[in-house]
């Protein structure tokens, strides 16, 4: 198992918000010209407060049918095993936009819930775009499978804590787990990415 690498993104310009995703989160399926201006305002706020940070490591794993032994524990999941089919190694990563985004959403949800909703959706899209960025970075000289997070399909969310622990995510990037298995800050993603 390798040690943990760290990514801190100071220049947010290389991340683009995918507005198709934002609209999907907002359940918008039509013309939104009326919202263009407010979306742009909200995007500015998100970029001001986001502090994208990530940790990742590369690890070997053993697979038997739908059971896989990772450095953080044993996972039984047919969906994940299909996703990782043929791989012997994988990246495990955790990416977050930081705690200030949570404060921002909380603040707007008190004064302008409409903006809170939009900021929440833009942040969700931004953290996904950050994940894409990390995957591109990790996959520079390798061919990678699509990322797979716990909570998808039959990959139980119970593994979240073990993944954060093995990445030392609390100390390195300030991500921790609540009793309910939710991660804080809320705009955080963990995932496994198979290396082909």
């Amino acid at each position: 198992m390798s040690e943990i690498s760290f990514i801190f993104l100071q220049d947010l310009k290389c991340l683009k918000v995918n507005y198709n995703e934002v609209k999907r989160y907002l359940k918008i399926n039509g013309c939104t010209e009326a919202l263009d201006e407010i979306m742009l305002e909200c995007e500015k706020e998100v970029y001001k407060f986001a502090s994208p940070k990530a940790v990742y490591l590369e690890t070997r794993f053993e697979a038997y049918d739908s059971t896989m032994d990772f450095c953080f524990g044993t996972v039984k999941s047919e969906n994940l095993s299909k996703n990782l089919y043929g791989c012997k190694k994988a990246y495990i990563f955790c990416a977050t936009l930081g705690a200030e985004i949570d404060r921002l959403i909380k603040r707007y949800s008190q004064i302008e819930p409409s903006k809170a909703l939009i900021i929440d959706s833009i942040s969700s899209a931004l953290v996904e775009s950050f994940c894409d960025y990390i995957n591109d970075y990790m996959g520079k000289e390798k061919s990678l499978c699509p990322r797979f997070s716990c909570g998808y399909g039959d990959f139980s969310i119970e593994h979240q804590g073990a993944i954060l622990n093995v990445l030392d995510a609390s100390r390195k990037i300030g991500v921790s787990l609540m009793e309910s298995h939710m991660m804080t800050p809320s705009k955080t993603v963990t995932a496994i990415v198979g290396i082909k």
């Binding site: 918008i28 039509g30 407010i38 819930p113």
Partner: peptide, 14 residues
């Protein structure tokens, strides 16, 4: 009716 969406509904409510 799907003519406007949640953010607009909320902005009007606010």
């Amino acid at each position: 009716k799907g003519k406007i969406f949640l953010p607009q509904l909320l902005m009007s409510a606010e």
